[in-house]
Design a protein around this nucleic acid. Structure first.
Lengths: 345, 345
DNA sequence: GCTGCGTGTTTAATCGTTTAAACAAAAGTA
DNA sequence: TACTTTTGTTTAAACGATTAAACACGCAGC
């Protein structure tokens, strides 16, 4: 159906064996091959516009130069940005990336992992959904190189690249406290995923450390499906709590988007009536009428590390490398102290 | 490195030939094979947790069940959404998708196409950058099934799925005119890409049809690299033109984002002082303080059609199918008539 | 009892590479 | 001259599947 010129064709035209062509084109045994034949073979290859059949090559060498990347949802800007960085990074090292979206569904995740394995990816970079420990463990048993991304399971020894979500949450809350807010709420996911627990716990701990009692209604948990209605309900619950909140931390960019959409339509002023901070940057945060303070993950670094860990694992199976990077707080108008607002503007 | 159980292993354990195992597992010659052996083979396959090596299978059958998708930038929400739809659609048909971002660079595009071909994708869905006609034509000569997405070259007969950009621009301008604006500007790309020309021409034609003279400064062209500074300059130029504009149409979501960021920081009220419309939806448009009217592409339909055209081309090489879909205008607050604004709010 | 047919299974070639090992001829060494 | 080494190239077996064709066997028909 496609390119049909093979090693044999070149060999025939050059009057040599296919093996020799393979040697030349791969620069093997370079000392032995005569310069003249080498040149001739290269010329003919160029002439016939030869390009190697990766399938055959991979079948023989058991190496596809392909890595699989599974994120929750490739259409989420956070995932898409990370995917792009990983794609570029992999490409620099001559690797092709194949993507998949798990939709936070462990069944779908498992299925994706297996189609990738059937296609013999050399390794996997994974953002595993909840309840996918078994899949990860079985990959480990099969000695398949993996790196977990953005998430990890404390009970499983694997390579991973994550951020310190606990500290990030703490920092966000401290910042809010420092601007005079004390009635701080959070909307995050009702999930057992470790990184989400840490976001939640960081919030709780920061308040406790500062002697603020966390009212039950201040912590709103929503499903990881990001249902708009559910998130709106959570916002309303926060606002109508007694005492109502004067600041809120959103556990993800999706939660932030849905919440801000509602807030935009209410007669509620940010940051006067309500300060907001959210996890992860998206462009929309800068476009909100009061640009939103956010917790910035070092995406470049995360992507680069994930690829480099995976590749070094490929060379040297068994190596386990982990990184917990620090997120940074990017302060914008949405958390300005009300009294500083006018001079700031 | 990975799964090591092959047809032979099953054959050995079952005491039959590998061929028979292949027949059973692929449900070929179903009438001939004895029910007993078939069952035995299936049992053993399950027991050994066999899964077929796609590389070997593809090498033999010359079919990878993989499609390649190249967009401008997978981290752009528009591309990411489309990619996700295509991924899902392909998966329904048992196809895996591999992605790539061309960054609007014909060289990179060509390179991506070739790495995908070396990996023997069955076909390609492409959003070609400017000056990539040669690549497309060479694919056609090699009879490689392709479908162009979002873009097309009028001189080349290929399958494609696009929207009617000319009509979409016209509709946007007509809408603005109908709300009483007459000094309508546009910021779009300085590109020879047909779909972008059509966006530009639709704008010009709509104004001309309504007897509005298009001032030269009303049409601002920027580079397709989406340079923030350049886009900001364009916005300023529109505003400081004489006469200055009272409405503007943005040629893409990137242009809109960059422009709105600036507008957000100016003391300019949307829609009173300036009405805005943009091409393509992103969530950020709903989060702008005055939710932005936009031209909505039917992404689902585009993605589904692209995949279905490609797959039918795979079955029946040579078929050319094209679709020009209609975009719809989603009217939000950013284009409300100033006099209707208060009752609307 | 021979022919022919249907059934269940195997043989063997093939896809396009890689690569260890074999080989033949030329060059070095003693 | 005879023997080893070096040099340039070929042979042939794999990788893990698919698939046309061959095969062996039991059974019906005449």
């Amino acid at each position: 159906m496609q390119k049909r010129v093979s090693l044999k064709d070149i060999a025939a035209k050059a009057g040599v064996s296919a093996a020799l062509v393979s040697y030349v084109l791969n620069n093997r045994l370079p000392s032995r091959i005569s310069v003249a034949t080498a040149q001739k073979i290269r010329d003919i290859a160029g002439q016939l516009n030869y390009s190697t059949n990766q399938l055959a090559k991979s079948l023989k060498t058991n190496k596809t130069n392909t890595i699989g990347l599974i994120v929750a949802d490739i259409s989420n800007p956070f995932s898409a940005n990370l995917a792009r960085i990983i794609e570029d990074e992999a490409e620099k090292c001559q690797y092709t990336t194949i993507f998949g979206s798990s939709d936070e569904d462990p069944g779908k995740f498992d299925k994706l992992v297996h189609t990738m394995l059937n296609r013999k990816v050399d390794g996997l970079i994974l953002s595993p959904p909840a309840k996918s420990e078994a899949v990860i463990e079985s990959l480990q048993q099969k000695d398949i190189p993996i790196v977990l991304l953005d998430r990890y399971f404390p009970g499983i020894k694997t390579s991973y690249v994550i951020i310190d979500n606990f500290a990030a949450s703490m920092e966000a809350v401290h910042h809010l406290l420092s601007t005079g807010r004390t009635r701080i709420g959070m909307i995050t996911y009702d999930s057992e995923l470790q990184h989400l627990l840490e976001r939640k716990n960081g919030y709780i701990r920061a308040l406790e450390n500062n002697g603020v009692r966390v009212e039950k209604e201040w912590l709103q948990l929503v499903g990881i499906e990001n249902n708009q209605q559910q998130i709106e309900d959570a916002v309303r619950a926060l606002l109508s709590a007694t005492p109502g909140v004067d600041a809120v931390l959103f556990g993800s960019n999706k939660i932030a988007t849905s919440s801000l959409k509602l807030i935009n339509s209410l007669s509620l002023r940010v940051p006067c009536d309500l300060a907001v901070i959210c996890f992860d940057h998206t462009e929309m945060l800068d476009l909100f009428y009061s640009p939103v303070t956010y917790i910035k993950q070092p995406l470049e670094e995360i992507g680069e590390l994930a690829v480099s860990y995976l590749l070094s694992n490929l060379l040297h199976n068994g190596t386990i490398s982990t990184s917990q990077l620090k997120a940074s707080l990017v302060i914008q108008q949405s958390t300005t102290r009300p009294d500083e607002l006018y001079q700031a503007k």
